[in-house]
């Protein structure tokens, strides 16, 4: 999720840190779920398991819930390719149940693709004889785990890229090296569906740098330049967009708007509004700020 999303204030008490502990995601054979599944295929089911330990007594004390409260542990997997969210089994937790539950995600691979994000929540089913500050509405979220990201299809989490012969395209200049294909109006759309880097296959140096993944210094400079150019294009366009500045905290997970907001948060750690002001007043200086953060030219001797 990234720290760009504000911590929401909830109208009820939440458990303290450590009251609920989630283990790492593991595959059915007990290995840690990797951040990248290189041999994944949509015909392959996605299966992952995690242990969740709920200190029930401590939790009902911290949240002013009754002893007869019932809670639910549910895991979710969200795909940025299909934009589907698939929920796993809901496991109920009561005073009588075990403190440790096993949350399972077993999902048809055909519903997934790209980058998937896994998370687990603890929600209220019933509050029992609760206090005035306790959650009371069924479904109230009491706890949410950190999100774990896993790239399916190997390279699917890379920036969406297409190799194109610019000379065969009436819309692209033959001599161009690359072109970022996107529109500022697509801030709500998934990154994989709306942004694409077009690489000119007629340009042998660019082709070698991007398509063959050459490790030659020349290729690394080209890749660095492209990364910088992509970041600059996305960030400056977004900072000139009233819609982005108004909604940068609320774009959906996996969307272009969210990705740009996270990029800004990661590299600047300040609000887009103040960046937009600097871009507007001193565009040249802001350009240097982008260069400093995305380093198109390595300053090391």
């Amino acid at each position: 999720m990234g720290s760009v999303v504000k911590q929401l204030t909830r109208p009820y008490l939440l458990p303290q840190e450590g009251t609920i502990k989630a283990g790492e995601w593991v595959t059915p054979d007990g290995r840690a779920l990797p951040e990248r599944l290189l041999d994944w295929d949509p015909a392959t089911p996605f299966e992952a398991i995690r242990e969740v330990a709920v200190d029930f007594e401590r939790l009902i004390g911290e949240c002013q819930l009754g002893l007869g409260a019932t809670l639910a542990v549910t895991s979710e997997i969200r795909s940025d390719r299909t934009t589907l969210r698939v929920l796993g089994d809901t496991i109920t937790v009561t005073a009588d149940s075990s403190a440790d539950v096993q949350s399972v995600l077993a999902v048809s691979g055909s519903a997934l693709g790209g980058l998937v994000k896994l998370s687990t929540t603890l929600t209220l089913v019933s509050s029992g004889d609760s206090g005035p500050l306790a959650a009371s509405r069924v479904g109230s979220e009491l706890w949410r785990s950190h999100t774990f990201g896993c790239a399916l299809e190997g390279g699917a989490a890379r920036f969406p890229t297409s190799a194109v012969s610019f000379s065969k395209s009436p819309l692209l200049d033959d001599k161009g090296a690359w072109s970022l294909d996107w529109q500022i109006q697509s801030l709500d759309e998934p990154v994989l569906a709306s942004v694409r880097l077009l690489i000119n296959t007629d340009n042998p140096r660019v082709r070698e740098a991007i398509i063959t993944g050459s490790t030659a210094p020349d290729s690394e400079v080209i890749r660095s330049m492209i990364s910088f150019d992509v970041a600059r294009t996305l960030i400056t366009s977004a900072l000139r967009s009233d819609e982005f500045l108004a909604r940068y905290e609320s774009f959906p997970e996996g969307s272009v708007g969210r990705a740009i907001a996270e990029l800004i948060q990661t590299h600047w750690g300040e609000s887009p509004g103040s960046l937009a002001q600097r871009l507007s007043i001193r565009p040249n200086r802001f350009e240097a700020e982008i260069q400093a953060r995305f380093a198109p030219v390595d300053g090391e001797a």
Binding site: D89, S98, V101
Partner: peptide, 8 residues
């Protein structure tokens, strides 16, 4: 380990 935790 959640034999007492019921799957709905």
């Amino acid at each position: 380990p959640s034999s007492a935790g019921k799957s709905e």
